[in-house]
């Protein structure tokens, strides 16, 4: 199956939003749209944007490795970072994005308070992200990860600006 078949190519709703649910991903060339994903806890939101092709995409993955549950990975590849992230990039390339122009941001990867640190689901998600990016020579333009907080991440497809809202306060993550 092609990447495009597994990743939604979306247009904005009446409010101008493309909402990315959990285990969901989409790419778009609609310059009036804003990609948004709500309430990232230990999950990670990844955005990418090509300012020349005006292609943007977002993924909200829940767990690092598809090997955890192959059946679920086949049904919902966006659930896992190791299969969801490559698919998101491929879908953006299919719409004309180029790797060397991509601005990539990430947010989420929070933890519960686990005093002996055995259950760091957020940290495992952050690790798979960095491992994949390292291996593929992709630099994160900006990220806001870790802690115990919830984050809502959004990206404007007009200019690729990424914002993070936490506890009612919004700030620009990119451009820096």
């Amino acid at each position: 199956m092609s990447a495009v078949a597994q990743v939604r190519i979306a247009d904005a709703d009446q409010k101008g939003l493309i909402t990315i649910g959990i285990a969901d991903m989409a790419v778009s060339q609609d310059p009036s749209a804003r990609l948004i994903t709500y309430a990232l806890g230990s999950c990670i939101g990844v955005t990418l944007y090509d300012p020349v092709a005006r292609v943007g995409g977002m993924l909200h993955f829940m767990l690092p490795n598809a090997a955890t549950n192959e059946a679920k990975a086949a049904e919902k590849p966006g659930m896992f970072g190791d299969v969801g992230i490559p698919l998101l990039f491929k879908a953006a390339y299919d719409l004309g994005a180029r790797k060397e122009r991509l601005v990539v941001c990430a947010a989420g990867g929070a933890e519960v308070i686990d005093d002996d640190g055995q259950f760091r689901v957020g940290s495992r998600n952050r690790t798979i992200l960095r491992k994949l990016f390292w291996k593929n020579n992709i630099l994160l333009a900006a990220d806001d990860t870790g802690g115990n907080i919830s984050r809502t991440m959004s990206m404007s497809l007009a200019d690729g600006a990424v914002t993070i809202r936490t506890k009612g306060t919004e700030r620009v993550l990119w451009p820096l």
Partner: peptide, 28 residues
């Protein structure tokens, strides 16, 4: 919470009780 269900302003600001991991044989 880890499944991303009902993440509110309280985020993940709750403790994991240490004894539960052993009692339930709950590994990552």
């Amino acid at each position: 919470l880890w499944a991303g269900l009902a993440i509110g302003v309280d985020g993940l600001e709750y403790r994991l009780a240490p004894h539960v991991k052993e009692r339930l044989h709950l590994g990552i």
